[in-house]
Amino acid sequence: MENKLPTIEINERYCKGCHICVEFCPKQVLEMKGFVVAVKNLEACIKCMQCELRCPDFAIKVIP
């Protein structure tokens, strides 16, 4: 089976920069870029959906 990379959509208008997704990502996929979150290492993503689940601001969508 082909290991397809997920798409991580970040809504920069909603993100308040609380760091929750960055800290609780088990693979350090995300990082802070200034005030908002950005994808640093998409290849490492295991699609655990923790960032989408925990984001209090509805700013992250992971499309596996």
């Binding site: 909603y14 308040k16 920069g17 609380c18 984001c55 209090p56 601001d57």
Partner: peptide, 22 residues
Amino acid sequence: YIRPGKLPHIWCPGCGHGIVMK
């Protein structure tokens, strides 16, 4: 389930209320 145009919400950065709402 969200009213159009209502987001982003007023809660502070890191407030857990958004997590509960989800």
